[in-house]
């Protein structure tokens, strides 16, 4: 199997040379990890290339999904783009600023939401956390009031402002965190797993808000996620990283083609039947009256459901999206 995988799907808006709002050129991050070697006492130094030569451009106002399995280098990339980590090699620019050298100047231009680490004040009303942001970022009063009012309206925070954060649900807290990251009018918003752990309704609310934000304010959004639905509903463009390398950069539909990923239709029939036969559909598993049908993720589920319903007594059905790990595994398999 080839180790070096070229980036495919070059049709994306911001890719290729030329100026971008976010510019990443051959960026590397090498960690040296010590671990116990053969002899118990000596620790051997061991190099881990968390990010191994990544290049991409993101245009102003783009909304890009950044996906990959755990430990692929997603977080490390985000940490370099926010100035938390210094790259070991390559060149990075966000809004013309070198993040590692001018972390403080950059912080006024970016908003960051770490999905699992809230920056809100646990024991204080939500409003107090926003006041701190107001003063910490020295946001002009009028601007602050305007931005807060907009976030409160769009994120439906009105009744939560005077509630201590510890009493908020996970979804309410996430909305609160997103508002906190936007009060200083950032040009770029980084979201690390913004929908993780949220229920279906909360997920939908967060997605809707991000879509509006991007459309109305032209905020550039880069989000990492495990949930392909996030990408499907928000991002025209998706980048896939694995083992520190960019595996794919382009449209989501293209990713499904490259990855030959499949969605699964689970149908419950009235009684056990022989495996369903349909064009372009493969029966993966039969368990009594329940059957698992796989079909290419690029195809719509609707005609398949119609065809099944027409020919079989259908009781219940559900569609399962392919998970990112499976898509990436298939990408590898497809190239070997």
């Amino acid at each position: 199997m080839a180790v070096a995988v070229e980036v495919t799907g070059a049709d994306s808006t911001g890719a290729g040379p030329g100026p971008g709002f976010i510019e990443v050129d051959a960026v590397e991050k090498v960690f040296s990890v010590r671990r116990r070697g053969a002899s118990r006492l000596r620790r051997e130094k061991h190099e881990v290339r968390a990010v191994d030569g990544i290049s991409f451009r993101v245009a102003r106002g783009e909304m890009v999904g950044y996906i990959g399995p755990n430990g692929a280098g997603k977080s490390t990339t985000i940490k370099m783009l926010t100035g938390i980590l210094t790259p070991s090699g390559g060149r990075l620019r966000v809004a013309g600023i070198d993040p590692a050298r001018e972390r403080t100047r950059l912080s006024y231009r970016i908003g960051v939401v770490f999905g699992q680490r809230t920056t809100l004040w646990w024991d204080l009303p939500l409003r107090d956390s926003y006041r701190l942001v107001h003063r910490m970022y020295r946001i002009p009063d009028a601007r602050y009031r305007e931005n807060l009012a907009r976030c409160v309206e769009l994120l439906d925070l009105g009744e939560l402002l005077d509630v201590p954060v510890r009493q908020l649900s996970l979804g309410q807290r996430m909305r609160g965190d997103i508002a906190a990251a936007l009060l200083h009018d950032p040009d770029v918003l980084y979201l690390d797993e913004p929908t993780i752990g949220l229920d279906v309704v909360s997920k939908a609310e967060v997605r809707e808000f991000l879509r509006d934000l991007n459309a109305e304010r032209g905020t550039t959004v880069l989000l990492t996620t495990h949930d392909l639905t996030d990408i499907e509903q928000l991002c025209k463009r998706v980048m896939v990283i694995d083992h520190g390398r960019l595996m794919y950069d382009g449209e989501l539909a293209g990713l499904h083609e490259v990855g030959r990923s499949e969605r699964t239709l689970v149908v419950d029939l009235e009684r056990a039947a022989a495996p369903i036969e349909l064009e372009g559909v493969r029966v993966v598993k039969v368990e009594g009256p329940r059957q698992w049908l796989a079909f290419p993720a690029s195809r719509s589920a609707a005609p398949i459901v119609t065809a099944v319903a027409a020919a079989y007594p259908l009781v219940d059905l559900s569609v399962r999206e392919p998970d990112i790990e499976a898509v990436i595994a298939k990408m590898y398999a497809g190239r070997s």
Binding site: R103, S107, Y108, V112, R117, M136, Y137
Partner: peptide, 13 residues
């Protein structure tokens, strides 16, 4: 260890 230091590093202070 728990990664919350990163949230301090993205602030302008």
């Amino acid at each position: 260890r728990d990664g919350t230091l990163d949230t301090l590093l993205v602030r302008p202070v």
